[in-house]
């Protein structure tokens, strides 16, 4: 089937004269002029603006949205480069249409994301001998190495400039850095105490082949997890800006001290300097403090994926021990039995909210009273009513018809589409609860789907089932098994342009690295949680995604061996109206019916306990066993 012609009035057209810009485009002319003025002052011919913050966060706070401010493009992934005459953004397929809607004609859009393509463009635009500037606190060691390698054989100089030039151009309009209180999670919501976690990391360091004396933690989920602390510096992520330097004899936490209550200071043992006392230092001191520590007889372990070049460059190379991920990332990836139980229980409550929403939609969409935005607001409200809720885990993706073809479309109060029984609707949403983070996607159709829509949906479901029921050897990397989620789509020439899953955990970020199915994810191990989320997007018509969270568990095999499989902990049935059972194999059908039985067992009693009888009846009906 050919993609439908969109009319494209919603996107910019820079080839006409005058250029045609949609209302959603941002005028960046003055912003670019202010940045170029700074570039001139610093003698830079190009300036690279990545999409992250000083902690390599995927979601960033308002003061860190530099790429968004300079380009107008609000997608969560994408790098901008500004030269004296040109400006360009590189982003992946999830955001191409969004970028065309939001950027004005000052900007080129490059539909790729590799650093090599960015470097190639800079080499073509910047003359020999000129400087290319970057903020070292916005580049991981890994990405700096890739850029550096790209420029090595050229005569352009990659220059680390610790003053952020976008911030200077942004000036007083730049939002302030957050200062909300940082609080300790009640112990019933944590898998271990912070002292136990510190001991585990120290033990890891002792057993490390290069015996580091200290580990520097830069990612925000590392400090939040290690100390069982949370705050709200970043939307949807309960984090606080911080670093930690954990050594064999001391613990230093770099954070604004005024954000702690007296009780939390006591919880952290901040009034001593013993090995189990947390010494607080100001956030801005991290570079100097690491430099001072590195002057001793020490070896500092860093995970290069999350440590920025800004901190890395002050550690002498002979005192560095580098791994891809810090020990905290690796230990955190495997949830202990208490953490698993907490996460599962948050998913039961979350399923209640999603089921309530689906029942509500079924009743109200035919009346024509629901739109994408009011729907998103309602499901967020349902989650907020759940115990231990701390709001959504990301901006709800509520997309009807052609809007669902944009994998990360979110409606606004001003711009949204009415839900209708005549088209498909995709809702991808999640909650932050004190016991767990959730993330689930369901796609539904309340009318008569086309044969192609049913086939595409069923094949996405087959991909989800094939990966979910897979039995594989322990310590297999996710990338090795990822194709199982795509096979049913591939065999008829369909595919999707995003990853197949991501780690998720206990009240941290919704995409909890390093678990997942990509080349830089760590090998699968018992106790990890990952999402499984194949999809299919038909530009201009509809989008499908079926996402569940799964726990990695031991598999029972006919012959003895160390094998793993997945156990779904998302408990919401798929849309029967869109499943073509004729396409399912007997094994897939059997798996699906067994999953539906699990949903009944886990969520049914909770619905009854709350007297949600309409929802209970709906669940019974939608989890009736399917037959070929």
């Amino acid at each position: 089937p050919e993609p439908k012609y969109l009319g494209r009035e919603d996107v910019r057209n820079c080839s006409t004269s005058p250029e045609r810009l949609p209302v959603t485009a941002v005028n960046t002319t003055m912003r670019l002029a202010a940045l170029r003025q700074q570039m001139e002052t610093w003698n830079l011919s190009a300036y690279i603006i990545p999409d992250t913050d000083a902690h390599m966060s995927e979601y960033i706070g308002k003061p860190d949205k530099r790429r968004e401010w300079i380009s107008g493009f609000t997608g969560s992934a994408g790098t901008a480069v500004v030269t004296m005459g040109k400006a360009a953004v590189w982003t992946d397929s999830r955001y191409w249409t969004q970028a065309e809607r939001q950027m004005d004609c000052n900007w080129e859009l490059h539909k790729e994301v590799s650093i090599s393509s960015i470097v190639a463009w800079i080499l073509a635009e910047v003359p020999d001998g000129q400087n290319v500037g970057f903020d070292p606190f916005l580049f991981s060691v890994d990405s700096w190495k890739n850029y550096d390698q790209g420029f090595q054989d050229s005569s352009r100089h990659l220059l680390s400039v610790t003053t952020n030039l976008v911030d200077v151009a942004w000036g007083s309009e730049r939002p302030p850095v957050p200062s909300q209180p940082i609080y300790a999670l009640p112990k019933e919501f944590t898998g271990s105490t912070w002292q136990e976690k510190v001991s585990a990391v120290r033990s890891y360091m002792e057993h490390h082949a290069k015996t580091p004396t200290g580990v520097l933690l830069s990612a925000l989920d590392e400090t939040a997890w290690l100390f069982n602390l949370r705050s709200s510096d970043i939307p949807y992520n309960p984090f606080f800006y911080s670093y930690a330097l954990l050594t064999n004899s001391s613990i230093r936490l770099f954070v604004n001290k005024s954000r702690f209550s007296l009780e939390t200071l006591q919880y952290l043992n901040t009034n001593c300097t013993l090995p189990m006392c947390v010494q607080l230092e100001d956030y801005s001191q991290v570079r100097d403090s690491v430099k001072a520590y590195a002057s001793g007889d020490v070896k500092i372990l860093i995970g290069v994926s999350y440590t920025t070049y800004g901190v890395y460059e002050v550690i002498p190379k002979e005192k560095l021990v580098t791994d891809t991920y810090s020990p905290v990332m690796l230990i955190k990836a495997v949830k202990n039995s208490k953490e698993q139980a907490l996460l599962k229980s948050s998913h039961v409550r979350d399923a209640v909210a999603v089921i309530q929403y689906l029942v509500w939609l079924e009743k109200n969409v035919p009346k024509g009273t629901v739109d994408e935005f009011s729907g998103a607001e309602y499901i967020d409200e349902l989650r907020r009513n759940e115990n231990f809720s701390s709001g959504p885990s990301f901006e709800t993706i509520s997309a009807s018809g052609l809007n669902a073809a944009l994998a990360h479309y979110s409606p606004t109060k001003e711009l949204h589409r009415k839900l209708s029984s005549d088209e498909m609707y995709l809702v991808d949403s999640g909650g932050q609860y004190w016991d767990g983070t959730t993330d689930i996607t369901r796609t539904v159709h309340w009318g008569t789907p086309t044969a192609f829509q049913k086939e595409a949906y069923t094949r996405v479901l087959m991909g989800n089932i094939d990966l979910s029921r897979l039995v594989f050897p322990a310590a297999t990397s996710g990338r090795v098994i990822e194709a199982f989620a795509r096979r049913a789509l591939w065999e008829v020439g369909l595919n999707y342009g995003h990853g197949t899953g991501h780690g998720i955990g206990n009240f941290l970020c919704v995409h909890e690295w390093p678990v997942g199915f990509q080349y830089n994810n760590i090998a699968m191990a018992k106790g990890m949680f990952t999402s499984i989320e194949p999809g299919y997007y038909h530009d201009g018509e509809f989008g499908i995604r079926l996402e569940d969270v799964a726990l990695v568990v031991e598999a029972k095999t006919k012959y003895p061996g160390d094998y793993l499989t997945f156990e779904l902990v998302s408990f919401v049935p798929y849309d029967r109206n869109l499943i073509d059972v004729r396409l399912l194999s007997p094994e897939q059908l059997q798996y699906l019916n067994r999953y539906y039985q699990t949903i009944r067992e886990n969520v049914g009693p909770e619905l009854q306990r709350r007297q949600l009888l309409e929802e209970f009846a709906w669940l019974e009906q939608h989890t009736e066993p399917l037959s070929a």
Binding site: N146, G497, G499, H511
Partner: peptide, 24 residues
Amino acid sequence: RAPHIISWTSLWVASALAILSWSS
């Protein structure tokens, strides 16, 4: 929420370096 596909560039660079150092 769907994760984006990570660029393979650094892996290619790492593989190329590994092959080069092995050959030499």
